[in-house]
Simulated assay, not measured.
Amino acid sequence: MIKNICLGILCFISVQLSAQGEFYPPKVEISDYTLSKFLTELTLAVGKKDKDFILEHLDPNILNSFGGDGGIEEFKMYWDFNAESTNFWEVMENILLIGGPSFDASKDKNSYYLPFTFTDWPDQYDAFEHYLVLGNNVNVRNKPTTENSEVLGQLSYQIVKISDPDGEILSENNDWLNITTVDNGLSGYVYGKFLISPIGYRLGLIKTENGWKINMLVAGD
């Protein structure tokens, strides 16, 4: 009897440890047809790089940064929106691909924010020091390269701490980042495109008399 209880406790601990730091995308449920329709239209517009659609659906007081005054003209300047080299489309595509939270779980039915890595981030993990490994079976390597490097392990939707070997937090502009799992069980390099910061770019939408509008596109804190 005691042996069975001990085995049960060990199994429970094993499950808890294996689940530590896991953060999977939520099941997205959107009962508001106008919002789901707008998200579809927005996704198509981003794919076609439809500037007119974006400008028509910006809130007049859109927040572009935490240091600016906001507004559509500031938006155009901030993103260099008329230039072919603007990275606006890439940023928007990444946000939409990551996806948002369940709209139906929100108390405010007149606003929606995404990605879920911003809205649902677990409080116990410092947003400035941790990222999410977004993907299944993402390789962790012993060197920041795919050439002549060893795969130390793989991670799927795990929250990890970002640092270099000396403990300094790295910029998300690096192609490869040094990571350590939250249980300190695995350290190595992960390619940057698989790492998402909870305080990276996020998108805010509000419901107005004229339909849904983009009222926020910011990064940082």
Rank of each mutant, 00 (worst) to 15 (best):
N4Y: 09
C6L: 09
L10T: 04
L10V: 05
V15M: 04
S18Y: 05
A19C: 05
Q20F: 10
E22L: 12
V28A: 08
V28P: 02
S31E: 07
Y33C: 09
Y33Q: 14
Y33K: 13
S36Q: 11
K37A: 13
L42R: 05
L42V: 09
A45P: 11
K49V: 01
K49D: 01
D59V: 03
N61W: 12
N61A: 15
N64P: 11
S65Y: 10
E73K: 15
E73C: 04
E73R: 14
F75Y: 14
K76N: 15
K76S: 15
N82A: 11
E84T: 09
E84D: 13
E84I: 08
S85G: 06
T86H: 04
N87V: 14
F88H: 15
W89I: 13
M92C: 12
M92R: 11
M92T: 11
G100Y: 01
P101L: 04
F103E: 10
S106R: 13
S106W: 03
S106K: 14
K107F: 05
D108A: 14
K109F: 03
S111Y: 13
Y112D: 07
Y112A: 06
Y113Q: 12
P115Y: 01
P115W: 00
F118L: 09
D120N: 03
W121S: 03
W121C: 03
D123N: 06
D126V: 01
F128D: 07
E129P: 01
L132P: 03
L132G: 04
N136E: 12
N136C: 00
N137T: 00
N139C: 05
N139W: 08
R141H: 07
N142W: 00
N148W: 10
G153Y: 10
Q154M: 11
L155A: 07
S156A: 11
Y157V: 07
Q158G: 05
Q158Y: 07
S171Y: 05
S171D: 14
N173R: 15
N174V: 05
W176S: 06
L177G: 00
T180A: 07
T180K: 08
G185A: 06
G188W: 01
Y189N: 09
I199Y: 03
Y201A: 02
R202W: 03
L203F: 08
K207T: 03
N210S: 15
G211K: 02
W212I: 06
W212E: 04
N215E: 13
V218D: 02
A219N: 03
G220V: 06
D221R: 11
